[in-house]
Amino acid sequence: MSTRSEILNVLDDLIRLEDVKACMIAKKGLDGVVPEKNEIDDIDLWKLIRRTTDDFFTIIRDFYDYGLKSIDSEIDDYIVDLTVLDKNTALIVIYPALANRGLLEVEIENRKREIDEIMR
């Protein structure tokens, strides 16, 4: 199984959680790994996030050596949670602002660790 397929399996598993509306692995300057399924009502927002992921890497690159681990943004009714995997790769997960965030964070961290392992 290719690295891409393995990562896609991990993301497909993550998006089965009721509160996860969309997720992807973003790679600087490259197409990310994006599961087919997403449940974001505002599809334009999702398209915008996918189109602009490269912009995040400017911030990641600047702060990476200072230990940047994640960037969270609240946009409309969603949280966009970006977990840094390395300088050029990030896991992006979108969930409702009212979701029980602490519980979700545990599963996002599990997925991050699995993807780290696959990419190693």
């Binding site: 965030r101 602490g102 519980l103 964070e105």
Partner: peptide, 10 residues
């Protein structure tokens, strides 16, 4: 507490 601390559970 789990909800409060999130990934610090690890």
């Amino acid at each position: 507490l789990l909800e409060a601390i999130g990934k610090d559970f690890f």
